[in-house]
């Protein structure tokens, strides 16, 4: 392994081909499971992916420790993470866009607005647009024979007094606070204060876990009042948006936890060389911003 000029070009590597194999087994296994098969292939794929990711990251970290990464190469990782987060933004944009379209176009048209009054009269007579959608077009037109039934309750706030017992508000507070604490951790690291870094980062991870617990609490409550994934398009958008966000919080918490363990157990990160942590913190700020969007468009305007 000699450096290729100034820019380190790694030697041959087994990681990519096994990562491809792992990814393939995972999705092939997932599709098999969904079509009535077992979990075996999926689990096998997950194990391969886990092993590959572990060795891939440890390779990159040890290369950096060995001093192979020039400043120019580090910049490639910075660009890479930035554009990866942009791709995640666009993934959420698809679901926010769907929510926007359904509320502003699909539901009014189903209730007979615009040029489409015959659709309402013939297919969904009696349906009226509302949000949160409690009475689905199916229920309006077919009564008890309806197959797609709306939720028993929604997650919007009912009265102004109940605001302090409104879970989404607490979730917002928790997540916004965690964005501040991760910033404190970063500042501490920049000031060469490793102890402060470990403490603030630890607090951030704890807040991330707290958010996930509260989110699980909310889901359990939702299912107990018949707000489920299949309760019409309100349930659909509610669970898909908050669910994908929750999945990203889980990943972000895991990333920060790994950074915390690296710092506490291995003493990694120096004030001028800490992009692994910075990348994870960018990701954390990103999930935070997505939550603000959710809080506004799913809960407050819900």
């Amino acid at each position: 392994m000699s450096a290729e000029g100034n820019y380190y070009v790694p030697d041959q590597s087994r990681l990519p081909i096994f990562a491809s194999l792992g990814l393939f087994l995972t999705v092939y296994g997932a599709a098999t499971k969904l079509n009535g098969g077992g979990w075996t292939i999926f689990m096998l794929g997950a194990v391969v992916m886990a092993v590959v990711l572990w060795s891939w990251f440890s390779t990159v970290i040890s290369e950096n420790i060995a001093g192979l990464n020039s400043n120019q190469l580090k910049k490639s990782y910075v660009w890479g993470m930035g554009w990866f987060i942009f791709s995640e933004v666009m993934f959420f944009a698809a679901f926010f866009g769907a929510l926007f379209y359904i509320r502003n176009f699909a539901l009014p048209w189903l209730s007979g607005e615009g040029d489409t009054s015959t659709t309402n009269a013939i297919l969904w007579s009696g349906f009226e647009a509302q949000w949160p959608l409690m009475v689905t077009p199916d229920m309006a037109a077919n009564g008890d024979a309806a197959k797609v039934v709306g939720p028993g309750q929604n997650m919007s706030i009912t009265t102004a007094e109940s605001i302090w017992s409104w879970l989404p508000l607490w979730n917002t507070i928790v997540l916004l606070t965690s964005s501040v604490t991760v910033h404190f951790a970063h500042t501490a690291l920049k000031n060469n204060n490793k102890k402060g870094f470990n403490i603030w980062l630890g607090i951030t991870v704890a807040l991330g876990i707290l958010f996930l617990v509260l989110q699980a609490e909310e889901y359990i409550h939702a299912y107990s009042v018949d707000l489920t994934l299949d309760s019409g398009v309100y349930g659909t958008t509610f669970f898909m948006l908050t669910g994908f966000h929750g999945a990203h919080v889980t990943l972000g918490t895991f990333m920060l936890l790994v950074m915390w363990l690296r710092s506490v157990l291995k003493g990694h990160f120096k004030h001028e060389d800490c992009f692994g942590f910075e990348a994870a913190s960018w990701y954390w700020h990103f999930v935070d911003v997505v939550w603000v969007g959710l809080f506004i468009f799913v809960y407050i305007l819900g």
Partner: peptide, 14 residues
């Protein structure tokens, strides 16, 4: 596979 209504008018989708 999971009964959502994105593209199903019966549930309010389109």
């Amino acid at each position: 596979h999971f009964g959502t209504s994105f593209f199903d008018a019966a549930g309010g989708g389109d």
